Simulated scan of single mutants.
Amino acid sequence: MLDKTQDAKKAVLYRMVMESHTCPYGLKAKDLLKRSGYVVEDRHLTTREATDAFKAEHGVATTPQVFIGGVRVGGYDDLRRYLGKPVADPKATTYRPVIVLFALTALTAMAASYAVSGSPFTLRAAEWFIAFSMVVLALLKLQNVESFATMFLNYDLLAKRWVPYSYIYPYAEGLAGLLMVAGALNWLSVPVALFIGTIGAASVFKAVYLDRRELKCACVGGASNVPLGFISLTENLMMIAMALWMAAASLGYIGTHAM
């Protein structure tokens, strides 16, 4: 057990600082120590040889390394634990990516609406919110379409029967979203959004609510830790709702709107 009272506000930090590389975790450790009230003795490891010698001397595999009261605390994550701060688990499930995405697309839609009409609270803003969300979701999937396709094949009903659909899906979603932003070619965007949204909603509902499977959602790309469930279903229901709304507007069943 480390003695936190001994030299409690003094720390020695060993970190890599070279011409071609400055360790980002070393910078984060130094900042965290200073913000926590420590006086930091900042010792630079300026060559690979010096770094390797330091690791061998102390029997560690990585740098930076923090010492407090003459006792090694460890690296950046170890320092956070020592100071009683949470350490992120890269494998933990989280809704943060989709929350941030929908929040920013909603604000972007409101900003665009304000620029066009002088008010952020318009019907066009609601339409743009869904369309912008589709475009950004497609962008995230297309960053690594192979990774997305692999995760998508775990649950999508059509992709399981026809693998190329797992590669087509993000392009179709992006195309439909862009056309909806522009209010152009409704005859194309409406059926595309309705088709992929309906298949997606049915797939998620079956996997999560009927089969009770615990899966990760491919909605924000294949590397996400977002659990498959309500958020995934919402993405598809939004596309369906938007497609039906635009179809009704095009056929004159509802009043004309900004699109």
Rank of each mutant, 00 (worst) to 15 (best):
I240Q: 00
R43F: 00
V208P: 04
Y169H: 10
T51P: 00
L45E: 03
C219T: 08
P120Q: 06
H58E: 13
S36Q: 11
V60L: 05
L233F: 00
L83K: 08
C217A: 15
A61H: 09
S113W: 11
A103V: 08
A125H: 00
A29H: 02
K91Q: 15
M180R: 09
T234M: 12
D89A: 10
G221W: 01
S224K: 01
L27M: 13
Y76A: 02
G252D: 13
G69V: 11
F102I: 15
G197Q: 04
M180P: 03
V181T: 05
A115D: 09
W187Q: 11
V66P: 03
F67P: 02
Y209H: 11
T22S: 13
L142H: 02
P86E: 15
L2F: 13
V135P: 02
Y114N: 01
E173R: 11
L215G: 00
V208G: 03
S117A: 15
M18D: 12
S20N: 14
V208K: 02
L107P: 05
P164L: 09
Y165I: 11
T256Q: 12
L251F: 10
A243Q: 07
K55H: 06
L185D: 15
C219L: 06
S36F: 15
R43V: 01
S250F: 01
L228N: 01
V190R: 02
K28V: 00
Y165L: 11
E214C: 15
S203D: 03
M180D: 04
E146N: 05
A115M: 15
A249W: 04
V136F: 14
T94N: 06
S189N: 08
I254C: 07
L139T: 14
K85Y: 09
V71T: 14
S119V: 00
W162T: 12
F205C: 12
A126T: 07
K141F: 01
K4I: 09
D42H: 01
R81G: 06
L215W: 13
P24T: 14
G37Y: 05
G200R: 00
A201E: 03
S147Q: 08
N225W: 01
A207C: 13
C219A: 12
I168S: 05
A248T: 10
F54Y: 10
T63C: 08
E19L: 14
L142M: 10
R96F: 14
E146D: 13
L179E: 08
L13G: 03
F152C: 06
D7E: 11
K206G: 03
